[in-house]
Design a protein around this nucleic acid. Sequence first.
DNA 1: ATAAAAAAATACCAATTAGTATGTTTTACA
DNA 2: TGTAAAACATACTAATTGGTATTTTTTTAT
Lengths: 194, 194
Amino acid sequence: MSKAAVTRLSILQKAFEFIYRKGYQATSIDDIVATTQVTKGAFFYHFRNKEEMGLAMISEVMHPGMIEAMIKPLVVAEDPATEIYAMMKGLLQSPMFDVRYGCPAINLIEEMSPLNAQFNKALYKLFSEWTQAIQHVVEQGIKTGRFNKITDSQQVVYFIISGYGGIRNMGKLLGADAYQIYLKELKNYLNSLA
Amino acid sequence: MSKAAVTRLSILQKAFEFIYRKGYQATSIDDIVATTQVTKGAFFYHFRNKEEMGLAMISEVMHPGMIEAMIKPLVVAEDPATEIYAMMKGLLQSPMFDVRYGCPAINLIEEMSPLNAQFNKALYKLFSEWTQAIQHVVEQGIKTGRFNKITDSQQVVYFIISGYGGIRNMGKLLGADAYQIYLKELKNYLNSLA
DNA sequence: ATAAAAAAATACCAATTAGTATGTTTTACA
DNA sequence: TGTAAAACATACTAATTGGTATTTTTTTAT
């Protein structure tokens, strides 16, 4: 990787850290510059403006991270309920995220998707990939007869994902115990689909 | 109501509108002042600083609104599943909120609870009231035998609330149809508890 | 080794931001 | 009716903000 590419990636990674904790709007270019070995000139050499940097952060940092933490763990296995539960448990217990700050993707959807069409589009793309991955597992479960009570896979998928987004927020107020309590009921719910 | 109280309330109501749409951090005092008949001097007469105004907005505007929309509709009735479902449906279909901007309380928990201990505390208080109101209904359902499959009411309450918070976020990307799909599965879930 | 392009560094700009100091107007009370 | 306090209005401040213009350094290619 060239030195310029290293510079660009370090900007994006530091931007990710700030945006994850304090939000995109409250993260300044000076914040990023002050905590890297980068200058403003270099920043604006790589990115036309702050918005372009934000979109690059979504596609170049958040997206690969999501693939790794939220999609790859979903393989079509014998028992889809166990599959989905394990993915959620792994996500919620991952040391990559801090209970106080929740989930970076969920945070950014909340903050920016109403305010910026490009952000909305980029986050929709991310979100759809995760939705489709879960839907694939759910539909395999229906096919194999393991989920014999499901009549509409999309409802189940939305229900599962909405629970995840919400419990991340609740964790900010209630702490990680809320995750454990949620996971117990998620398990009950998934088992009720069989 | 005195003229000064009217001034104070108009600041808080306009602040609520801005914070609901663009977030607390991105809402400036000048935003509020420019869209009311208030001056900066008046603003700082009523509030020591921006933070104090934000906390007042939570307790004096958000809190009564939440009582009205999220707690009052929950009365202990014959069928708690129908009760909770009707409250959620009413909330999600309320014209008070815009699908693009989600739920003001959920938004503010996401944005500010990690960043400011006073906000965290105020939002925790709001959140606890709603949690307790739902828990009351769920526990009545257990007592009357309507919810005979529930072994832990807190799990169910957290599961329901997390779903709400998450679907509000999903609505920002997917639109109001996502709410309908979610509500269908919520009904299935509530019925599975009986 | 050299020259050109890429990649950065520096200095600066105008607008915005939360907040302050001081003055004026309105309200309340005797 | 007059006075004092409350409630506002105005002007200003220092710091921050996204971004620009220009210069310098580094890298790459010949």
